[in-house]
Design a protein around this nucleic acid. Structure first.
Length: 577
RNA sequence: GCACCGAUAGCUCAACUGGAUAGAGCAACAGCCUUCUAAGUUGUAGGUUGAAGGUUCAAGUCCUUCUCGGUGUACCA
């Protein structure tokens, strides 16, 4: 017995009632809805879509179905409210079914087989390796972490991949500045986090370049040397790249990012060029008089697009052929999603069309999850102008605020625990702040006001979780095999039951829409309903031990649901705060 | 110019993908701690969903036009 079977039985009942009342075979999919709270019902069915098929007014259909609904042992009542049908389950069996299922499934509660084990490859983060990560990357990483977890819970097999854009003119700028002015310096000697050190050189170079335009030519020479494989240049490039990765890894760890695969543009661009040449043979691409290679997309409503320059060097999009092809070969995915900002929409439109034309059938299974920019009140973040919100600094800042606000009087904690907790709260706050917004939308980030610890925030979710933990810990016993679920009947308890039993459905919706904000609003609702319950009812001080047990069972189920949705948001479910 | 995205309460966001009276948080005001953590909770106030048409039994959601904001339209990445 599961929540799913309960719903299935209702759907079957509806079909049967329709057939009985209208004498037609009814086979189309029935969609149960969650009724508005005021209706005080568990499930609802809207009869409007039936009115054409059954040639009857919706309100009439509703009452007919209600009248002809078969006898069941799990339903309390079926009532027609205008054109809607509202269903109320017998509360004892609803509580029993849902809670037992949740407690049994534990960490995997929320999982469905919706994705049919198809392999979903998720690319995210993919930074340009000449500067530290900033707020824009934070949004990207949080989306990547969350979406990959959501897809997994929805029944896909998920692999993550990060592509490092590790070649090109930007990294050469940092290299040139280093050679000219840094005199064998290291991040360690400079006392800086290594990616910040490299990023600093880039900013310094950009400033200098404005005064000394001849530097631009010098950088081109460095790039040329790099392309020619000049030993000293490659060695310097490797040294500086390693510094950047060292820095990134620290930040990724804080963010919660992890990747099953990594790729480097410095590898894949060669493969991209090979594909371009092969495509030329196949007649997919064509060559102009100056020997540059192009593809004609005018039939697809796009333009002609250059893929290899006349001097044989490749452009940005070329490496993406190689990157994608390598993935298909090595990882063999069914679907692939690129989590990249919306400024690159056209780029991906072109890329997918080219892959398709080249003959990669899987191009149809590639998607661009395009998310809105994160802007500051002062406008766009520009790394060259130093107006970026740095990822590490932001995390530090939030951690410090969390630490200041922490009340250590009530709870026993040692130094390490306090540090970890402050980190978790700061991280949770920014994570929720970003993920609660639909990916399509641009985020305006006001550092002074944006991230809060009160109201609809990550902190609130964590706080609710700790309150549950605290009760469970004080209870301190195992529940008996048989819990008397008939003792749960308070409106606040029923409201929670309805919510948590809908979790798998929400996960599925979030997966379909590739939209973590669904999970964010949902988890807030769960926490909110728990808080209401907490405020109005006590658990441990009850006289009746059986009633305590019933409520404990409910709270265990709430804890699991809340913890699982926090996991999907990449937020740590802490036990005390 | 063309293409894509956004516009919902003073501010920041939701709205089960077309369904029941458009909901939260922040900010403002007024209550609630001898009781499992007050980073909580209850209430008040706040709306012509950017504008105008259209489709539908039903539109914040779909179609058309317009306004404002963003992004793209590179032999940059």
């Amino acid at each position: 017995m599961s929540i799913e079977t309960l719903k299935k039985q209702i759907k079957e009942g509806i079909s049967t009632a329709i057939e009985k009342a209208f004498e037609v075979k009814f086979e189309s999919e029935i969609k149960l809805e969650i009724p508005p709270e005021e209706q005080n019902s568990d499930f609802a069915f809207a009869c409007f879509p039936l009115s054409k098929i059954l040639r009857n007014a919706p309100f009439k259909i509703a009452s007919q179905i209600a009248e002809n609904f078969p006898e069941t042992d799990f339903l309390e009542e079926v009532k027609a409210v205008g054109p809607f049908l509202n269903f109320n389950l017998k509360k004892e069996s609803f509580f029993k079914t849902a809670i037992e299922q949740i407690l049994e499934e534990g960490e995997s509660f929320g999982s469905t087989d919706f994705g049919e084990k198809q392999k979903f490859l998720v690319e995210y983060s993919s930074p340009t390796t000449n500067k530290p990560l900033h707020l824009g990357h934070i949004r990207n990483n949080f989306l990547g972490i969350s979406i990959s977890r959501i897809l997994k819970m929805a029944g896909y097999e998920v692999e993550t991949v990060c592509l490092y854009n590790d070649r090109g003119i930007q990294i050469c700028k940092s290299m040139l500045y280093y050679e000219k002015f840094e005199n064998g310096n290291t991040p360690e000697k400079a006392g800086m986090k290594p990616d910040h050190y490299v990023g600093d050189l880039y900013v310094k170079f950009s400033k200098l370049e404005k005064e000394q335009p001849e530097l631009t030519e010098e950088v081109q020479e460095v790039l040329q040397k790099w392309e020619d494989g000049d030993e000293a240049t490659i060695a310097l490039w490797e040294k500086m790249s390693d510094w950047v990765y060292e820095g990134y890894n620290a930040t990724y760890k804080r963010l919660g990012s992890s990747f099953d695969y990594t790729q480097f543009e410095s590898d894949t661009y060669k493969l991209g060029k090979e594909i371009s040449l092969k495509g030329l043979e196949k007649g997919v691409f064509f060559q102009k008089e100056d020997s540059s290679i192009w593809i004609d997309l005018t039939n697809e409503g796009l333009d002609e697009k250059l893929v290899v320059r006349k001097d044989g060097t490749t452009v940005y999009i070329t490496q993406d052929f190689g990157t994608a092809a390598e993935r298909s070969e090595k990882i063999n995915f069914d679907k692939m999603i690129y989590i990249v900002g919306n400024e690159q929409e056209y780029h991906f439109q072109v890329l997918f069309k080219i892959l398709k034309k080249y003959g990669f059938g899987w191009a149809d299974e590639c998607f661009h999850l395009s998310y809105g920019m994160v802007d500051l009140p002062s406008g766009k973040m520009k790394s060259r102008e130093g107006t970026v919100v740095d990822a590490d600094k932001l995390l530090d800042e939030l951690k410090n605020i969390a630490k200041e606000k922490m009340r250590t009087d009530n709870i026993e904690m040692n130094e390490t625990e306090i540090e970890e907790l402050a980190e978790a709260i700061g991280h949770g706050a920014i994570s929720f702040f970003i993920l609660k917004v639909h990916p399509n939308k641009r985020i305006l980030f006001n550092p002074a006001e944006s991230v809060d610890f009160q109201g609809m925030t990550g902190t609130y979710l964590q706080y609710s979780h700790t309150r549950i933990c605290s009760i469970l810990k004080k209870f301190g016993k195992n529940l008996p095999m048989e819990v008397d679920f008939s003792l749960l009947a308070e409106p606040e308890e029923v409201a929670i039951l309805r919510l948590i039993s809908n979790f798998p459905e929400i996960v599925k919706e979030a997966a379909i829409g590739q939209n973590p904000s669904k999970i964010a609003s949902y988890s807030y609702l769960v926490a909110k309903n728990f808080s209401k319950f907490y405020d109005r009812h006590s658990v441990l001080s009850l006289e009746n031990e059986s009633q305590i047990q019933a409520r404990i069972a409910l709270l265990q189920a709430v804890k699991i649901t809340l913890a699982n949705s926090l996991y999907l948001l990449g937020i740590k479910a802490v036990e005390k705060m």
